[in-house]
Design a protein around this nucleic acid. Sequence first.
RNA 1: GCCGGUGUGGUGGAAUGGUAGACACAAGGGACUUAAAAUCCCUCGCUGGCAACAGCGUACCGGUUCGAGUCCGGUCACCGGCACCA
Length: 808
Amino acid sequence: MKYDFTAIEKKWQDRWEALKPYAAETGSDKPKFYGLIEFPYPSGQGLHVGHPRPFTALDIVTRKKRMQGYNVLFPIGFDAFGLPTENYAIKNHVHPAAVTEKNIANFTSQLKMLGYGFDWDRCVDTTDPKYYKWTQWIFLQMFKKGLAYKTTMPVNWCTSCKCVLANEEVVNGVCERCGSEVIRKEKSQWMLAITKYAQRLIDDLDDLDYIERVKIQQKNWIGRSTGAELRFDTNTGDKVSVYTTRPDTLFGVTYVVISPEHPLLEKWQGRIKNWDEIAAYKEAASHKSDFERGELNKDKTGVRLEGIEVMNPATGKAVPMFVSDYVLMGYGTGIVMGVPGHDQRDWEFATKFGLPIIEVVSGGDITKEAFVAKDDSAIMVNSGFMNGMTVREAIPAMKKYVVDQGWGKEQVNYKLRDWVFSRQRYWGEPIPLVNCEKCGWVALPESELPLVLPQVDSYEPTDDGESPLSKMTDWVNTSCPCCGGPAKRETDTMPQWAGSSWYFLRYMDPHNDDELVSKEAEEYWGPVDWYNGGMEHTTLHLLYSRFWHKFLYDIGVVHTKEPYAKRTSHGMILGEGGEKMSKSRGNVVNPNDIVDQYGADTMRLHIMFIGDFEKAVTWSNEAVKGSKRFLDRCWNLMDIARDDIAVSAVNEAVIHKTIKKVTEDIDSLKMNTAIAALMTLVNEFYAKGLTKGDLEQLMLLLSPFAPHMVEEMWELTGFAAKYGKMAMQMSWPEFDEAKTVDSHKEMAVQVNGKLRSTVVVPADADDGAVVAAACADEKIKRQMEGMQLVKTIVVKNKLVNLILKPAK
RNA sequence: GCCGGUGUGGUGGAAUGGUAGACACAAGGGACUUAAAAUCCCUCGCUGGCAACAGCGUACCGGUUCGAGUCCGGUCACCGGCACCA
């Protein structure tokens, strides 16, 4: 019988659609398992070959969990707000909602084509008002708690999207999405105070089962540093504060630098003798993007503030003050102290401006370059009471001294910034706030949620940087929920990250109109047991959603501090030639083509077999054949499996070994070696023959990988009738450790650590017997001629190493 | 520059400190076939040899060990992230 994958896959997909074997049951007595994949953005191009990699992996994990008796939640949905859809809508004069609907339909059929065990009844769509009602609701709670605030600040402005970007969305100075130039622009923006959660976002990582590089990357992004904030007296009557991680170098401070945006400059306008020069510098800096400022980092610019002097409290001496755009207003205090002896950047600045360079840590030659000690055991000099201390001792000593003297305080800083939450675009969740002349910003009553996106004539962003919604005067002009007076709606919308920051909660209870998620459902399903997604989301989606979840925990909506117990990450799939797949390179692989040619089961199997799940792999159309060939060989086993095979125990050890290997490998996402083990098993079957019982075991092990073909075989071989169940509903095979051991072992024989021969010994042979067998081997006898055996090392079931030396 | 990671046949990739190259792809040879496809069998790291076999071999240099792809120190290359963060 031929393996007609097209007909078989259609047949089983239809049957699953009707029988719903993947439905998750809230409140079941079984142990629960919540497996999650990052829901896709339904782009117009359809499913990319990158999608099936994580989807198939977690599909296999959850199918196995189901067979192991778990009540599994494995949901799917669509993260459908976003710019590509809006841009497409603008270009083609269709409503973004229509585009989204079409794309979701296409994605849905492609995902069904691949046979994933999603619970489709729980599908969510972030652009559905029933969904974004709750996105808006969460925002309102944040607003009420003071975590959402509006402020005017320089923001990243994409010149092409005509839209504000979060820091995380700017890559190498250009827009992550369209690659256009990003400039700085002053705008009034809604912000979310993620920085208030910075410490918790670091601390709570410790208890999570995330792959290490995700934890490290998040910690680096949050960027905690400990130091001190020091106040310096000036000749203006004002004090200035600087932040430093190295208070121990205070005696080495020979100047201070202020950021061009710092408000003190304006205040000091009358005192600064070269104000024209300073004003010009400020003006020039304001036109540069952050990226341009960074670009020029080799050649520091700056201007001395004539007439301003700062007192170094440690030395009591006055030092000059400069303005320079290498000092960022957004980090620390916007003013830094210059220690040119021990900071390379300060050294270059001091050298350029002819400032003194003082050594306060010994061990380098500060006339040539700054001495930045590699460890903290260097000795302090020229530093008053700290002289003779190591840096390690000096830092805490100085911190204490600073506090005692009233010069400042200990301080922790984070690189993480608050989240710019406004977007001047149409296709996003409306922000449910109105601005009243009397009451200021007022929240819509929750009863008015969802605040639905109004129909507009044009989705084009406006040149003045306002949202297209701003043109809808009927919609914009409203009354204040507080005082009833005239008010205007907020016209910015939320960023795409909003809807994806909590979607995993909605899957638990997707049709609830009264609550975001019911207590019962959340307490049953939360937290997500296993979340797999791309490394590119580590500092965006993953961090944002942890933040939102912590907030929901604080207001009692969820019962766990963290949303995801475990996080794994997949590598990218590269096109032929090892390059990133892209339309311009013409190396994009469409999963439909593979499915048409080889079937979904081959596609699933191959994308898992292709290599280490965590690493990038190169796609090869040629190699797919091997996976298809393997499935053909499995299928054809039906013709040779017998009940009356003479030695039915012939395959026992290899079957138990395979069960063990496949069971363990799926749990650690080593799908490639799990499949290799199945291939080895099938090769054994062809070499030695197999019983129907052997085939039954193989089908169960293979069913998570190739569910369609296995169900068909299961039916054809009569097991479906025998058990009255589909293979996927059977129990996962168990292995018996004792039965994984062969009766005889082939052991390596080394002489002085070099492999010289192998011997076969009974599995239970003791060390003496192994050594005797080794010494009896012809090749070893030759090695031993004229030699004396001085030592033997036996590694159970692996090898024996004979240490020989010349006989006297 | 800083933080992670990787480096193994023609290719994708396997190897709790214990027989390097499992499992595949490609290639070569053979069987079956009118023929092709499909299928099946054999060979397949490099060098020498008809062969048995010997020597070499996991980016490079050194170390620890009876034994190192694996551990340690150093170097190089590539990938990812961050980058004037005081």
